[in-house]
Nucleic acid binder design. Sequence first.
DNA 1: ATGAAAGCGCTAACAC
DNA 2: GTGTTAGCGCTTTCAT
Lengths: 353, 353
Amino acid sequence: MDEVGRTGAAQADDAPARAVRIQDVARLAEVSTATVSRALATPERVSVEARARVLEAIARTGYVPNPAARSLRSQKTYMVLVVLPDLSNTFFSKILRGIEETLFEAGYGMIISDLDGSPEKEAHFAAFTAAGRVDGAILLNGHLFGQSRDGKGSAAKLNIPLVALCEAIPDADIPQIEIDNRAAARRMTQHLAQLGHRSIAYVSGPAQNVLERERFRGYRDGLRASALPFDPDLVVSGDYTLESGVRAGEDLLARAKRPTAVFCTSDEMAIGLVRTLSSAGVRVPEDISVAGFDDIEFAAVAQPALTTIHQPRRELGQTAATVLIDLLQGRTTPKRIRLKTDLITRNSVSSPR
Amino acid sequence: MDEVGRTGAAQADDAPARAVRIQDVARLAEVSTATVSRALATPERVSVEARARVLEAIARTGYVPNPAARSLRSQKTYMVLVVLPDLSNTFFSKILRGIEETLFEAGYGMIISDLDGSPEKEAHFAAFTAAGRVDGAILLNGHLFGQSRDGKGSAAKLNIPLVALCEAIPDADIPQIEIDNRAAARRMTQHLAQLGHRSIAYVSGPAQNVLERERFRGYRDGLRASALPFDPDLVVSGDYTLESGVRAGEDLLARAKRPTAVFCTSDEMAIGLVRTLSSAGVRVPEDISVAGFDDIEFAAVAQPALTTIHQPRRELGQTAATVLIDLLQGRTTPKRIRLKTDLITRNSVSSPR
DNA sequence: ATGAAAGCGCTAACAC
DNA sequence: GTGTTAGCGCTTTCAT
């Protein structure tokens, strides 16, 4: 088909133009179909002139290999599945972009599965994957197919390369791409302590969450490194949502003795908390400093702009895709990659009065 | 394979378990492969008992049809391409979710292509599409493959159903799913006028943009309906980005005579503008009211919370997917669907002093 | 209602 | 270095 994505392509008629097949190219180039195939897949195994003729014929016909036929024969799909818990969560969009661009460059397509908390969807995609519709998968959902989030249940055996991204999957023997949550939390805690805060509250994520466990350890590390005692009363439970940040704010407001700084383990919670404090006349950072985690888009725009931990989201996606492609192509890969985070200082944190 | 997505599946050995084929099912059910195929695709053409035996055999073996083989034979892929200009733009995530869930229910997968402003990527996906790798496509990028954004250039003939979502594609003879941008802009303008504003500025999108043209017409409609004169000086040019909102704010601040209200045609611009005004000591909404458009996540969380136009993003995605599926299955569809928007009143707009 | 058999377009094994 | 050929797993005539 010569109408493929070119402007001004000469198209003889408007008939639905049966697709060009490898045979057509072979005939035009006066070689066999095998040579055409090889010219594309293993150019070095084809004579220079044959290759030139094939390429010429391809250019003239606009030939594009039929992926279904190729896939059926070679048992490869050149498709990667990206599994994520919630597509509408904006945290994932930059990560997806990193994944997509890397896969694209390597000639792979990306299929997205939004699990949406639905076991049926998960079963479907598990079957989809098992049926060989994709060559590999990137898991952003913190568990394997067939497993519950806490690692219970026997994971489906998929026989394809898998990579865990962001949320590590503890017992799975697959590469893990993540940030160093513990180190980042420690760093933020120390940052607050160095500014002079002695009473630093911690707003947690969900109790069983892998990220939460690491960040909490980092918080305690930071306190210890700053010679501050750990006070369980200063731990407020949250679940990363804005609403839980609002509740944490109300909790803090109800206290007689308030901390001078609050480390929220997500930006959304930090934003909810700041709102609640501000509405009650408590100024941020003058009265209480508030720090977040993630550096989502809005962190920089919030009032006050949020001091937070920046996650290299695009790079996380790129790295996961790169590792998966390495796996797909038989290369060895590291078992775990931790990307660096940055502490971004903005206006929601200052020294205590 | 009985290990597919089930917990506690009994798996005899760890051998890479060659996939179950239709032959295996046929043998077990004691029917031909044709009957198995029919039992799945056209159950009414198979006797009740044969169907039962086939279903039983499928359940026992965990058979899942090989999509490449099916696709090669039937010339269908059960895949839909979603083309968007920028995956990392959070505006798209909820739309994608709506698309994905609807496609999923109908048995279609979704491939995302992030054009990223790259002509090569676009050419690639055009070829990809032309090569029959997808059955249809949803275009969120405002133009056809091979066309420039303003409709110039000959569009690639793809011979597959296409649907335009959000940004209408003027000359293309394909269904358009969008909001009524003009009516929404008119409504917001009238809302501001009704509160008593006589001097309402307008921060535009990019000049050639389809959305911008409609919204601008709505703005003028609203002025006219409120018996307010149109003043070109009150039109400030922007491009939907936060930065352009900041610039618009600086523009306004530099004026001797300021409007009492500003209608920004994107929330991002509104947020940037509010920041700039606030930093300069101009209070929103006490000194100047600011309205946005889109109702992105942060509109509700911004300080002050943004009065804006809510777009039903998930529903937009669902509708586009539904229309595409109708097309794919030979049903007729409306040429254009306009979904209702809502005016959300929050705190960034009030009556002028 | 069911089965036999052709064949979708490609790649890989084998022969030369 | 190149051609011939089998066959990936399925759906779909065409028979019966």
